[in-house]
Design a protein around this nucleic acid. Structure first.
Lengths: 141, 141
DNA sequence: TGATCACTGGAGCTTCAACTCCACTGATGG
DNA sequence: CCATCAGTGGAGTTGAAGCTCCAGTGATCA
């Protein structure tokens, strides 16, 4: 619930890249370890972020991934969109096409409130909030 | 994203029952139609709500479902819990057991904000907000 | 008491997200 | 150039959520 597994992986990976923003590139195996993503699945997730223009990839020696722009310029919404299109389309709780504030279904107000809160969060949160935590990605033991 | 399909079905069904709160019981086929749930799947969803004590079921003539208590006494959180246990457990964005405010992972603050907003919504919203919309479940054409 | 209605619950199918595997391609350094 | 590194991308597997089917059971009405 809330986020798909892949969306969560994407956020983790981006958080790791943000933490390493000034330190060069990160390879998929490092990402797999640091972001706690199944090793063979990293490339799938990263590919979508690369295609979306959020991440820059380079092959070969000293290759790897890094953010395509500064952490403060990347919102969570952009990350979620990259892995999960239509994530910012409002959808009616009754699965109806014709449902808007003027002509709402019975769950419209309640459901709208949830979606508004989610969108506000996703659009106002950037990767800096992750980066500000410092370079240590995982909590100290 | 946000809610599972089954969770959404459960909320819809409960909204329909809330709207019919003073009008007697609703059968599964009525629920299937009004709440827009696959007809053979209604019984699965309803069963969980019955077991959770949120809905009262009766068989035979004039049987069907109705809320076990008044709409204002049923929160969305209770409904979500009924279909999807562990929905109100906070879970670390890095999938770690040991992650708390004192010893947070890098995504903790951002992720926490989202979960807080979700829990606040689920706990403060009751079925009255659905019921207040009146007896018409779907928007007028 | 029999007919019918409507929930119950188990068994099984379907679909898709999540995940794995691997051959290929491009880049770098020696 | 050759060896090696590291992302790319297609093909296939898996497991769980979502959904279907249907025989069983309990309740009501005539």
């Amino acid at each position: 619930m809330l986020l798909t597994q892949t969306a969560e992986y994407a956020l983790r990976a981006m958080a790791v890249l943000a933490a390493r923003w000034s330190t060069g590139r990160v390879t998929s195996s490092q990402l797999a370890r640091d972001a706690n993503i199944p090793s063979h699945y990293v490339s799938k997730v990263m590919r979508r972020l690369v295609v979306a223009g959020l991440v820059d990839a380079r092959r070969g020696h000293h290759g790897g991934f890094r953010l395509a722009r500064a952490p403060e310029e990347i919102t969570f919404m952009q990350v979620l969109d990259a892995v999960d299109f239509q994530s910012h389309e409002k959808h009616c709780a009754f699965g109806l096409g014709a449902c808007d504030p003027d002509n709402p279904c019975i769950l419209h107000p309640a459901y709208s409130a949830l979606q508004d809160c989610f969108f506000a969060w996703a659009e106002s949160t950037t990767l800096v909030s992750a980066r500000e935590q410092g370079v240590d990605v995982l909590p100290a033991r």
